[in-house]
Design a binder for these strands. Structure first.
Lengths: 136, 136
DNA sequence: CGAAGTAATTGCATTTTGCAAGTATCTTAC
DNA sequence: GTAAGATACTTGCAAAATGCAATTACTTCG
């Protein structure tokens, strides 16, 4: 069940993001949709972090309610939904890249590509544009 | 109690950030320390989102365990601790500013300063440097 | 029609959160 | 030196969220 008024705690911009993304799963769905070409419920379930079906259904519902993503029936198979970012969702790209950069700097176990940091630092705007262009 | 091995779900950079910041409170503490000059347990408790004492104590402990912040006894009052960012913590500045920008763009209720977006877009590096310089 | 594929929902045990009250240590005022 | 206040927590318990396994519902394919 979606919290109907979503109990907004304040009008702080940091808090605003937490109202949607302040849990351990939502951002992984965004990641899969943004960087891994995943677009269906079944795709998201396959991720290595092993999200469970009830949590996935709940988070997709909330992301849609917050107008980060929208879904449509797949053209090739009408029993399937295709999830896509809204413009608001696409605007998360700079945040996601900045988060990736921080982890690349501070997590010695990070599996970010070896060239990520230098590519990002030398061409941030280009990388943002490239990710955006790669979303249909 | 801090999860001893913190059950790392994957080596994905997005997931790495979630392991520390994937809840509704931790980032508010970072915000207060980064932008509002708050440095003590009592200061953090005063924020409008009304964090409770047990959650605050737990999150400060985790932030310290993850080496985002460190605490020291206050010089003027030995019954008080002063919390400060580590270098790893200071490196969160670009993420926090990017998050603020996203909310400023997409939350009509946002209380971000009216000039924030234009200042940020025209001088991102300067703003990062300014915030950093403002941390002791 | 029946089997397979896709997207969920349900029930229940475990974990986390939120709230109120209590405790411990250090400082200040007399 | 002691009592009152300031500061930083801890504890106990009810409520909510999470995680897991099983089940349901709808669509497509043969």
């Amino acid at each position: 069940m979606i919290r109907n008024s979503d109990a907004c705690r304040s009008n702080c911009p940091i808090n605003f993001v937490l109202e949607t993304f302040g849990d351990r799963w939502t951002l992984l769905i965004v990641r899969d949709l943004m960087f891994k070409g995943k677009q269906t419920y079944g795709n998201f379930l396959e991720s290595e972090e092993q999200i469970s079906t009830n949590i996935l259904a709940d988070r997709l519902r909330r992301l849609e309610a917050h107008e980060i993503i929208q879904k449509e029936v797949a053209k090739d198979n009408r029993s399937k939904f295709i999830y896509r970012f809204t413009d608001k969702g696409k605007d998360l790209i700079p945040i996601m890249l900045e988060v990736t950069a921080w982890s690349a700097r501070h997590d010695s176990q990070s599996n970010a590509p070896a060239t990520f940091l230098s590519d990002y630092e030398s061409g941030r705007e280009q990388m943002i544009a490239a990710v955006r262009a790669n979303l249909d």
